[in-house]
Design a protein around this nucleic acid. Structure first.
Lengths: 196, 196
DNA sequence: CTTAAAGTAGACCAGTCAGTCTATTGCTTT
DNA sequence: AAAGCAATAGACTGACTGGTCTACTTTAAG
């Protein structure tokens, strides 16, 4: 397994199609067609569709983690400002995909976590890593006194991730980023404040 | 179309299976098998699978709306207490379904709103009706001075629905209601408060 | 008693699904 | 040059998909 170009093409096409249509609605043949790879190659690199799906998740997560680090651990920017940039990036992405795609991990979490424990575990791990990035950013904010110290950063991180994923879902059905803006506004007005 | 018993059986089985597995993963034959109805009857009552799916949504929404009214418009109970009961009911349901089902409308919103505008519109309408129920409850709370008057109830309702749907999603992938509890806790500690 | 419609019943259709199989190509190592 | 493996290539399989079709039974109306 030296040549990874074909494997990469498969994963890229798969990520795109699965983002748009979901896992179950995306057939292997459709993936092959969009990237012009024969079926023999697919089953050379992946043992099954599930194996392929997990690879798509893994790739997306590790790629997304890089942008997350760049946004949330940029020490030249105040922590709350970093969070705002993260939210703005999410809104931009929502516009770019015409409010259709949203968050791949969130989509698959909704679709597959009741269907397969393997997928559920993989997706859960990604969520937990994201939460950890938030925790660190919130710790910085507490250290600077930008937000009150009385709520654990872990609790806040869970609250933020949870609310943001919900806002993405709502934005998809509404075809508007308004719920995302609404969430952010109240979050910074009432939750991420110096003191209560 | 006088005899609705068969139609009802189909919708009930469909709702159950779609809740568990999603729309795309639920075949018509599987629905027929679980309620022992032949295919001829199915296409007698529904013109297509999409038609059937919309009927399932409609039925679920109108049935769920009744429990929503009972919880959120119970004038013998303080408005914030009504909300707490609503959240508690959601957590109970999550336990009952072994953290696998969650919210049918949320599931379908995630799975189908990028796939079909018909479904998206139908689901969006349901969400908006729910939001309206929250708005009324929050108005009551503001009138009593239980929460600050400076934030529009519509904005708060959107925030709550959004966050709750996200918490359900997170609870599914985590197989624990902890994110739901976390969301509720911070919501009542920081957002739904008399004054800021 | 007749007749039409509502509803039941399931065999059947073309198309698609994930996955298998065999054959062939291209590269690398000896 | 020969052997051996990685990778390409796509025809093919059985199971299953949503949907159609015809035949039959029940119910209600005139």
């Amino acid at each position: 397994m030296k040549n990874t170009a074909t494997r990469d093409k498969l994963i890229d096409s798969g990520a795109q199609l699965i983002s748009q249509q979901g896992y179950n609605a995306t057939g292997i043949n459709a993936v092959l067609k969009t990237c012009g790879v024969p079926k023999g190659s697919f089953y050379h690199y992946f043992s099954s569709k599930e194996d392929f799906g997990l690879a798509v998740i893994e790739r997306f997560a590790s790629s997304y983690d890089k942008t997350l680090v760049a946004l949330l651990e940029d020490n030249d920017t105040p922590p709350l400002e970093r969070l705002k940039r993260y939210f703005a990036a999410g809104r931009d992405h929502m516009h770019e995909c015409n409010h259709a795609t949203g968050c791949l991990i969130g989509n698959l979490g909704q679709e597959l976590s009741g269907q397969s424990d393997t997928f559920r575990d993989a997706l859960n791990l990604v969520f937990q890593r994201w939460e950890q990035r938030f925790v660190r950013c919130l710790q910085d904010a507490q250290a600077r006194g930008d937000i009150a110290p009385h709520t654990a950063p872990e609790a806040l991180a869970s609250f933020i991730l949870t609310g943001w994923e919900g806002a993405i879902l709502r934005a998809k059905t509404l075809k508007s980023v308004e719920p995302m803006e609404q969430f952010e506004k109240i979050l910074f007005q009432q939750v991420l404040v110096p003191s209560s």
